[in-house]
């Protein structure tokens, strides 16, 4: 029996087992391929959600920031009042007619600067002896984000309430950079089961650059998730600047005294007021997807950049 089985097994006359083995192998390979393709399709859907979350994270933050910053106006009014007291000695030739000889014998000036930001109380600086006195560098406190940008474009601690500040234009300020972080406190609703996903995963970093002409470039990037991938979006806010100035001179007083036989002194006090008003507001002028990480370092958006609304 044993010999028979052995001979059957060693028999080379049939090919059924070979074909069966071949069929089994084909079935196994085809099955594995089909299963792998199916799993890959299911996995793609899961990755789609992660990719979409990055996209919605950044676009939501961008929408929020654009909504908060666009169309808001900051007004800065700078005023310089120079009060000049001039004493002139008049010599009258009484004997020979009305010939008058005027001689300025003294002139003193004082200045008062004020800077007013929106509805805030104005910040004044008095200079008793203009222009040799220097001011104490008064500044505003508790500024909002746009106030800070506008103030830095026009003024800074060094030249606040000075002639330099009076001559500065919003169209040519210093470049400013910083980072804003958009953070979520989480859902405030009672039901935790339908709550927002991990609030920290929704945080977005926004690098802002203010160019000398007042253009604000915001580059938003999501916080890195498990995949380590990021999505970046760049928004350009273009400024609309309106700067006006006016100057008025008024005589506050004019007195004559120290009368003598040969003449008198006249003291005239005048005030020259120079008012410069600068208004700035921003509107969203371009949104673009940042393609590479190196590109995310807040390079300026070209003028006329098309607004991109495609999802990733």
């Amino acid at each position: 029996m044993k010999r028979k089985t052995h001979s059957v097994l060693r028999s080379r006359s049939g090919a059924s087992i070979t074909f069966a083995l071949l069929l089994f192998l084909v079935c196994a390979v085809v099955g594995a391929l089909v299963l792998t393709a199916g799993s890959a399709a299911a996995g793609r859907v899961s990755n789609l959600a992660q990719s979409d979350q990055r996209y919605y994270n950044v676009t939501s933050a961008a929408g929020l920031l654009a909504d908060e910053l666009s169309g808001k106006k900051v007004t800065i009014v700078r005023t310089r009042e120079i009060t000049t007291k001039t004493v002139t000695e008049y010599k009258v030739n009484l004997a020979g007619g009305a010939a008058v000889n005027a001689n300025k014998i003294a002139e003193t000036s004082s200045a008062r600067y004020t800077t007013k930001l929106n509805e805030r109380p104005e910040v004044p600086t008095e200079l008793a002896d203009y222009p040799t006195d220097t001011n104490d560098g008064a500044v505003f406190t508790d500024l909002t984000f746009l106030d800070t940008i506008a103030v830095k474009l026009l003024l800074d601690d060094a030249n606040f309430n000075t002639d330099e500040a009076m001559n500065q234009s919003m169209k040519n300020g210093p470049e400013q950079k910083g980072v804003l972080r958009v953070l979520h406190a989480g859902s405030t609703d009672a039901d935790p089961n339908v709550g927002v996903a991990d609030p920290s995963s929704l945080s977005v970093d926004c690098l802002y650059v203010v160019q000398p002409d007042g253009t604000i470039i915001l580059t938003l990037t999501n916080s890195t998730d498990k995949s380590g991938e990021t999505y970046s979006l760049r928004i350009k806010l273009s400024p609309s600047i309106n700067e006006t100035e006016s100057e008025t001179t008024e005589t506050l007083s004019s007195n004559r005294d120290s009368y003598t036989d040969s003449g008198f002194h006249e003291t005239v006090t005048t005030r020259t007021t120079l008012t410069k008003t600068a208004e700035i507001s921003w509107t969203v002028s371009g949104v673009e997807k940042v393609v590479s990480a190196a590109d995310a370092s807040a390079q300026p958006v070209e003028t006329g950049t098309p607004i991109e609304t495609d999802s990733p």
Partner: peptide
């Protein structure tokens, strides 16, 4: 809309 919440924007010292 399914939930409400708050967002804070902070200035970060780099």
């Amino acid at each position: 809309s399914t939930r409400t919440g708050t967002v804070e924007i902070k200035l970060v010292d780099p």
